[in-house]
């Protein structure tokens, strides 16, 4: 296991996340894809920390996880409101975010 395999894995995760982000219509799926992308970044932090030495990366990863939790909380709240207001969470039906 080397740094490059870890980075390759992280890139793959990130790419999957982006793909899902752009193609999915369900809010929950989009939220999950964002999680994938965030964890790809966390993986990079940890990998660099492991192979290059130092704990800075790990500290950042811990911060990032905490941040992601907060973000998910907000995201889920939005999804719930979306569901309550229209009984569906498909993003292409919600087009009020203009003007």
């Amino acid at each position: 296991m080397t740094l490059s395999t870890c980075l390759l894995l992280a890139t793959a995760l990130f790419a999957v996340g982006i793909y899902g982000l752009l193609t999915r219509r369900q809010a929950m799926a989009v939220l999950l894809c964002i999680e994938l992308m965030a964890n790809a970044a966390n993986l990079c932090f940890v990998a660099f920390s492991r192979f290059r030495g130092g704990v800075t990366g790990q500290v950042f990863a811990a911060f990032s996880i905490a941040l992601t939790v907060a973000e998910v909380a907000v995201g889920l709240a939005i999804v719930i409101l979306l569901y309550r207001s229209r009984g569906d969470t498909r993003l292409d039906l919600a087009s009020e975010m203009k003007e």
Partner: peptide, 16 residues
């Protein structure tokens, strides 16, 4: 003005 569609997916695409 038409660029702004109001769809979150479009905005995300623009960001990407």
């Amino acid at each position: 003005r038409p660029i702004q569609t109001g769809l979150a997916t479009d905005y995300v695409t623009a960001v990407v």
